[in-house]
Amino acid sequence: MSNTPPPIPPSSGPAESLRDFVARTAERDRGHGLFELETPRFLEVNLNGRMNIKVGSMVAYEGQIKFTREGIMDQGIGNLLKKAVSGEGMRLSYAVGHGQLYLADTGKKIIVLNLKNESLVVNGNDVLAFEPTLPHKITMMKRLVGFAAGGLFNVRFDGSGLLAITSHYEPMTLRVEPGRPVTTDPNATIAWSGNLNPQLKTDVSLKTFFGRGSGESIQMFFEGEGFVVVQPYEEIYFQAQGG
C-alpha cells in the first residue's frame, strides 16, 4: 500500500476573486488560548515561552521565535538507549519566544487534547506538539526487537497539559473491555489509554499469504479496560523482518 495520501481533487465550484480568497483563508484569532485550530489541519500556537514541537512541523510564524532541535541527551539515558534500539526517536525541536506559531504535518488532521492528570500513549509519528510541563517518555513494546526492524516507538504522557496529535482523516476510537479484546494494525494505530499494555503478535496465515515482509502479519493486541484510537490509513513505518 502506498504511503502517499491520495491527492485532493480540485474544486469544481466557480472561481473566486483574490479578495474573497484572502478573506476566506485569512488567519483568525478565535480566543481559544494556547492552542487554536485555524483549520482541521493547521494548528496555531500562541507562544509565550517554550513549546515542544515535532521536527519539520513549523510552516510559518509571527513574532520573535527561535528553534532548537532536541539534544541527544535531553530525555535522559533511558530514552537514549531506547532510541538506539529502535533506530527511531521522538524527533522534537523546541520553539522558544513570543508570537504566533503555525504547525502542520503532511496535511493530517489535528486533534487537540487537554489531559487532566491522565495517561495516554501516542505513536511517536503522530505527536505534533505538547506543553513542556506535560511529562513524557519514550516507550517500547515487549519483544519488539524480535518482531521488527527499524523500530516502533511510542510516547507516553502522564499528567496535565495540552497535547496535539495527528491522524490521516477522521480517527475512530474502539473500547477495550474485559473479555472483549481489540486487535489492530500497528501502522494504523494512533494512541491508546495509558492503563493498557498492548502485545505484538503474528498471524501465521496472514504472514504466509502476504509474505514475510508484510506489516499486516504483525498485529497489536489490546486486552483489559480502556480504549485504542485508529486511523483509516496505514503509515508504512513498521515492517516484519525477513522480507
Rank of each mutant, 00 (worst) to 15 (best):
F227C: 06
L92E: 06
I165V: 14
R156Q: 13
D158A: 14
S93R: 05
V55E: 00
G97M: 08
F147R: 10
I72M: 02
I111G: 05
L101A: 11
V229P: 01
F21Y: 13
H168D: 05
S119P: 00
I218P: 02
G87W: 06
F21C: 03
D105C: 12
P132M: 07
G71I: 04
Q219R: 15
Q64C: 00
T208D: 09
V45A: 07
G226W: 06
T166Q: 06
I138N: 08
Q100H: 15
R175L: 06
H136C: 10
D20I: 08
G31W: 05
I65F: 00
K66V: 04
K66D: 04
L47F: 04
V122Y: 03
D20Q: 14
K116G: 05
K109P: 03
T139E: 02
A148M: 12
G99K: 03
P178H: 08
E70Q: 12
P14G: 10
K108P: 00
K83D: 11
R212E: 14
Q231Y: 09
G56E: 00
F238E: 02
T183V: 14
L196H: 07
G78N: 13
F238K: 01
G242F: 08
P171F: 10
F222M: 12
Y237L: 11
Y61G: 01
S160W: 05
K108V: 05
N125G: 06
T208K: 11
N117M: 07
R143F: 10
V127E: 03
G97Q: 09
G151S: 08
G161S: 08
S17V: 08
I190P: 00
L113D: 13
N114E: 12
N79F: 05
P5R: 08
T173G: 01
T173L: 01
L34I: 15
E235H: 11
Q231C: 07
Q231D: 09
A15V: 12
I218D: 04
K54C: 03
S86L: 12
I8Y: 03
F153A: 10
M58C: 02
M90E: 04
I165Q: 02
P178F: 05
V127L: 04
S57P: 00
L80H: 11
V112M: 07
A149I: 11
D105M: 12
H98Q: 13
V85G: 06
F209S: 14
P6G: 07
A60V: 00
E36R: 08
G150C: 09
N123W: 01
M73A: 13
A164I: 10
S217T: 15
R156T: 11
I190H: 01
S119W: 01
F221P: 04
M220Y: 01
R24K: 13
Q231T: 15
T184C: 04
T106M: 06
E223L: 10
Q239A: 05
I110V: 15
F130R: 11
